[in-house]
Nucleic acid binder design. Structure first.
Lengths: 201, 201
DNA sequence: GTCTATACGACGATAGAC
DNA sequence: GTCTATCGTCGTATAGAC
């Protein structure tokens, strides 16, 4: 009980200073890159002293790790929600793309950090994002959809890549500024293309 | 004339030492990351002294830049070749996917460096890969295919992302080890999914 | 918990002989 | 062109007062 509370507190602790650091850090990591961001920049951007930062996070990697677990956790819960609210892959895949596009517009830094950066270079002990729970849930959706005959019989990875690859490319283009307008304007079109790729007939 | 020769020499110069350095560098950059690779590691891996490395490349960034221009140049030529050999988007897109899959199998480090790394973090002055010539050629193929009525009318970026997004995802999965078998085994399936996504009817 | 000041190590880059 | 030896800086992390 006490251990569980402690774990929860470690992840979702919302004390101002800690949040101020994480907020500054993700912005800097995304815009300049992890290795191009000295702690000193985080000190300036957050207004928190270097002593406090090390007090909370132990080392620089600890800051990145805190961001990683926060967002993996959140994405996992949202993916699990989708699985509960919908039963067919048709609706599930649509909801996944909608969710990812929404996140990209509402919190571009979070998505850029999770999908854009090569996290393994500075978080060597964490599971790579595309092997982690949210993506695992997406693969399972597709697996079920194929088993139930909702989509064609394909290699699993081909089906997953074909169904979500287009949306993920759009997100990359949006993050890197090659798409100017909000992604939700393309949501329907992107999903329709994706669905045609794997649908029966 | 002489200037042209000098330019060519700067790009494709194949003196053993220079190549040994580039060969060692791309392996280290891909497997450990640019920022996790001290010059000293390149010295060891290549067997070339640090003095010679600086003689040829000026600084560390110069090594990465040499790799970048080499591969952009090569990919551009191969994409242009595809444009010459085929006229319809149907065949062109198929050839592009085949080419990318082949490169991934034959020179995984080159593809991982160009598509996997976030080059802008250490090559801030170079055009991001997805805005550079090879990808520009891919976008033009799609543009022409849409103008000639070969595929449905879609936003250009949606069409491009849908047509090549699946293949690019497969490449990422292959590079990161989530796909064990060679990509050419999935080539036909991947292209068929991609084509269904954008094809008419 | 928060801060300032400082120690320490690593890495990029240069000098200069051969 | 190639090498060895060396320098200077920057950035992580710690010490220790408040």
């Amino acid at each position: 009980m006490r251990a569980a509370q402690k774990n929860i507190q470690e992840v979702v602790d919302s004390r101002p200073t800690r949040l101020r650091v994480l907020d500054a850090a993700i912005r800097l990591f995304v815009h300049k890159g992890y290795f191009n961001t000295p702690i000193q920049d985080i000190v300036q951007e957050s207004g928190v002293s270097i002593g406090s930062i090390y007090h909370y996070f132990g080392d620089k990697e600890g800051i990145a790790k805190a961001l990683y677990v926060t967002y993996i956790d959140r994405m996992s819960r949202e993916m699990a929600d989708i699985n509960v609210r919908h039963t067919a892959l048709r609706e599930r895949s649509r909801a996944v793309i909608k969710l990812l596009f929404q996140l990209t517009e509402q919190e571009p830094e979070a998505i850029a950090f999770m999908l854009g950066a090569k996290l393994q270079e500075f978080l060597p002990d964490e599971t790579p994002v595309c092997s982690a729970k949210p993506f695992e849930l997406m693969r399972n959706m597709v697996k079920e959809g194929m088993a139930s005959g909702e989509i064609r019989e394909l290699s699993l990875m081909v089906a997953v890549s074909s169904l979500f690859g287009g949306a993920l490319r759009m997100i990359h283009h949006r993050i890197e500024g090659r798409i100017k307008e909000p992604l939700y304007r393309h949501e329907k079109e992107v999903w329709e293309c994706a669905w045609r790729a794997v649908a029966k007939s």
